Simulated scan of single mutants.
Amino acid sequence: MKVGVFATFMSPQATPKMIMDFGRRAENAGLESIWMGEHVALFDKNTYGYPGSKDGRIPVPEGGGMLDVTATFGFLAAATTKLRLGTGVALVPQRNPIYTAKEMCTLDWLSDGRIDFGIGVGWNKEEVEACGYRWEDRGKRCDEFLEVMRRLWTEPVVDFSGKWVKFATLRMDPKPIQKPHVPIIVGGYADAAFARAVKFGAGWYGFNLDPARAKTMLDKLDTAFAKAGRKRDSAYEIIITPPMNMAPDHVKQYADLGVHRLIPNLGSQRPDKIDQRLPEIENVVKLAA
């Protein structure tokens, strides 16, 4: 089982030097990948709370904000040589699909095939609407946008006529290094998310799941595969970010579930906290070997 790290870089701590040093330290520590969350804007009041915290708020430092994932991954790709870089997750329904396809295939090209495109529909209603889209149809829009991107990555010339996207004789080059295209890793726990994972995914990503809950979600994923007349094979990647307080013996439990990649959360990006947390994650690498 491979081990990476989830690190949503936030200002003011995430300076260029901090990001470069962290990327190199992660690579030298034997970590396989860095995954980064995405939010282009935050709001003082939200219709729905952030599911990853007890108070429903994203823990952003005072006066700070989340860095853009595309620009940050371009920076990290230049600072490292082996680390894979995964979006955890890119909020596809609020992104322009043509720009997103271009960004991801360019990142894949410049990183020599080290990009994983983790995707989800998002929880922040205000953010979706501020980006110019409707909240209620984000799932169906996500599926159409993924189809657009998949075709742009694999076909020399594309004509497309959907509900949200229409164009003719469109060319997009260079194509991704990875074949058939940048891997799509689908996140989410709703039935629609599992169906999306079966249709589009090279894998599924679960966040903040202990082994028991991970098993429950994998059972739902297998049900979705069965409904599609398919069976999940060993090449289909299961990627899990465990809770921050993961017990050491849980590493084997994740492995026994068939988890391919375990992505512990870095947490705080204060230098002293990183110095404390990275050895803990290095120990996970040893336990997973």
Rank of each mutant, 00 (worst) to 15 (best):
V285L: 10
R25Q: 12
Y254E: 08
P61T: 03
F6N: 03
M246D: 02
I115N: 00
P242Y: 07
W123H: 10
V128W: 00
A29D: 08
K102C: 00
K17S: 13
Y50V: 01
P180S: 09
S111A: 11
M149Y: 01
A197G: 12
G206W: 00
K227Q: 14
E237Y: 03
P183D: 06
Q276W: 05
S234V: 13
M244H: 14
M104F: 15
P59V: 04
D173Q: 10
S234G: 08
F160H: 12
R232Q: 10
A190R: 13
M246W: 01
Y133A: 10
R196S: 06
K82F: 01
G23I: 06
V69G: 04
V121I: 15
L85V: 00
E237V: 02
M172E: 00
K273E: 15
G74H: 02
M104R: 00
P271M: 02
T80S: 13
D256T: 14
P174V: 12
K166S: 12
P183I: 05
L221M: 13
L287V: 11
Q94S: 14
E62P: 08
V40M: 09
L209C: 12
Y50H: 09
L107E: 03
E103K: 03
Y205D: 02
F43H: 11
W164F: 14
E155N: 09
D222H: 06
A195T: 05
L110V: 15
S268W: 00
L91Y: 02
P97V: 04
G120M: 11
V182T: 09
C131E: 10
G88Y: 12
D219V: 15
P180D: 06
D233K: 01
S11F: 00
L76R: 06
G37S: 09
K54L: 11
G187Y: 07
N265H: 13
L42A: 04
L42C: 05
F200G: 08
A289N: 13
M217H: 11
T81G: 15
A90L: 15
C142I: 02
A90N: 07
R171P: 01
G86H: 00
P183S: 10
L42Q: 06
K227S: 14
E280N: 05
L42R: 01
R196H: 03
V128M: 12
M104H: 03
D116E: 12
I239F: 02
P51Y: 09
K273A: 14
D233A: 02
A193G: 08
Q178E: 04
V89W: 06
M10T: 11
G267S: 02
F167W: 07
K215E: 15
F73K: 01
T47P: 02
S53A: 12
K220I: 03
T80P: 10
I19L: 10
E280D: 07
A214F: 06
E129G: 03
N208L: 15
G49W: 09
N28Y: 01
E237T: 05
I19M: 12
L209T: 05
P12Y: 08
Q94M: 14
P279W: 04
A29F: 06
I34A: 02
A71Q: 10
C131K: 08
I34C: 04
P12N: 07
K82C: 01
A193N: 08
G37H: 09
R196D: 00
M20N: 09
M10H: 05
A29I: 06
M104C: 09
R196F: 04
F75Q: 08
T80Q: 10
W153G: 00
D55R: 04
V165Q: 12
R277A: 11
A41N: 08
G56Y: 09
T81Q: 15
S53N: 10
W35S: 09
